[in-house]
């Protein structure tokens, strides 16, 4: 086993996902199968290989810090599930 039920529950919590007990079983099976398949990557010697995060080399893409048109507060709030202009409304965060 590459991953067990307890680890899946922990990962779900980190991912901010709530799983039923049945879902924990289901995803444990799927993730274990995928991670077993991925084991094949461990057979390659990568000690002298540089990691790649981006296929096209690009560094420090900069522009002048100029004010440009942007969304109005109204437009930015338009899709909010709950709002009170000019704010997004969320459940109480502090006790």
């Amino acid at each position: 086993m590459s991953i067990d039920r307890e680890e899946v529950k922990h990962i779900a919590l980190l991912s901010r996902l709530e799983l039923s007990e049945e879902e924990v079983d289901l995803y444990t099976g799927h993730l274990d199968g995928i991670l077993n398949y991925v084991e094949k990557l461990k057979s390659i010697d990568v000690s002298h290989v540089e990691p790649m995060s981006h296929a096209i080399p690009m560094f420090n893409v900069l522009r002048e810090d100029e004010i440009q048109p942007s969304l109005s507060s109204h437009e930015a709030l338009e899709n909010a599930p709950d709002r009170e202009f000019p704010y997004f409304r969320v459940p109480r965060v502090t006790e």
Binding site: L31, E50, M52
Partner: peptide, 25 residues
């Protein structure tokens, strides 16, 4: 969940970092 797992402490080097190196290859 898979992505969270491969980026999590203890597994990052074994999975994500290693995959980035094989991407180079």
């Amino acid at each position: 969940m898979l992505g969270t797992y491969v980026l999590s402490a203890g597994f990052y080097d074994a999975y994500y970092r290693r995959a980035q190196k094989i991407r180079t290859l």
